[in-house]
Design a binder for these strands. Sequence first.
RNA 1: GGCGACAUAGCCAAGUGGUAAGGCAUGGGUCUGCAACACCCUGAUCAUCAGUUCAAAUCUGAUUGUCGCCUCCA
Length: 472
Amino acid sequence: MENRIKIFNTLTRQVETFVPNVDGKVAMYTCGPTVYHFAHIGNLRSYIMEDVLEKTLRYAGYDVKRVMNITDVGHLSSDADTGEDKMLKGAKREHKTVMEIARFYTDAFFADCEKLNIKRPDVVEPATNCIDEFIHMIEVLIDKGYAYVAGDNVYFDTSKLKDYYVFSSQSEKELMVGVRDDVDEDTNKRNKSDFVLWFTKSKFDNQELKWDSPWGVGYPGWHIECSCISMKHLGEYMDIHCGGVDNIFPHHTNEIAQSESYTGHKWCNYWFHVHHLNDKSGKMSKSKGEFLTVSLLEEKGYNPLVYRMFCLQSHYRKPLEFSYEVMDNVAIAYDKLLKSVAKLKDEGEVDEAKFREYKDKFLDAVGNDMNTSMGITVLYELLKADMNDKTKLALVKSFDEVLSLDLTKGVSEETDSGVDAELEKYILEKIEERKAAKKEKNFAKADEIRNELLEKGIVLEDTREGVKWKKA
RNA sequence: GGCGACAUAGCCAAGUGGUAAGGCAUGGGUCUGCAACACCCUGAUCAUCAGUUCAAAUCUGAUUGUCGCCUCCA
């Protein structure tokens, strides 16, 4: 098939035409969440943009298989956390195990994704399901001479590679060890950039999850899981690997080191990295500033899809600054968008030529390194364009396969406004009463009725189609 | 200290060599008893400096600013 999708490849640092290993098929992998806490909306930005990438590929006609890991092993029982982890503490108080915590936050993660219309990947695999695979890969790496045992841990020897720093022109000499306060230098390592494949000596004494291994009871290093899980489901050749920019080094760098040493050949051709969501003070994090979750946005009255649109209006390779001011902007824009879609009449015949023309236009926008902002512009153009409603509606539905903003849902939900039948009956009576008053030009009474309803939290609007009401 | 990204109107943002899309807000108007809705009109020479070119927001160099990564944070 024709390859017309372009994406920025971190490996080459340029926008390239995407060509999969197998024509028409895409093997795609996403670094999933570490499930020790709720995801904040910055985490979710990555998943939204990766979702758009997946859907764009499908929209272009590719058969996509997407795999995601769930990191449910690692630092779960660390007490070094900053004390912000109230849910974990709460769970501990309730005598929950780490696995229960993992399950809870895995579910919470996918619940958030659902609210944001993020499709669940075809395969979701928790790390703790694949311990045997990890051990096997580590054994092979030791056999091949890429790994060594020191101080009861297994390390990957980065000096065995010609080009360890595949993503940048960094050098080991310039690497600073322990830039972060909470990281100590590990004296077992032969090279500064070596990393752990298997721990038996943890700095977290109370590590709850442990497995038997040829090197003693312990647990896997962080990077091994993505290599193994992706190969388990996608084989030794992959097309696209996604994640947040902070994963570039060391996580993805190490994944490549292990995977390619293990297989002996090139592993993944395209690396897709989403930039961070910032707040005024910089990178959003769980321990700093307001802990912004999807639920919090909902509490503040925002439809989660407004946040999705907020992300789509920007570009994934640009840092994006979150603010309620912009959210308010987008909320209004989203509302107007839904309204103008709702006005479209589902009548007539779809104009196939126009349909194809705009579908192409949209794909060219979104397929050009995920220019989602341009995609939304095509949507606006479409709504203003000279064509019948049926065609417009068909196109809006089509675009929404990628945008996933529930653009056509708003139409039918108009009637369900969340008030009980009794109140609704009362409102309808009042509207009739007001109508009569207006007919008699008794505007004082009409306004009085409107104010009365307003006090009950009901807003009246006189539209061209008649009186409409909604909850304030 | 090293590596990297980004810098366009009040805000979000497109643009990858030929004289600045779109959205929200603002202001003006049409409509309607008023309000709201809807619709129409309304705005920037692109961080700074220098260079390449007939021509630069778009290429090159320097400067400034913001942000990120440098071992488990998307």
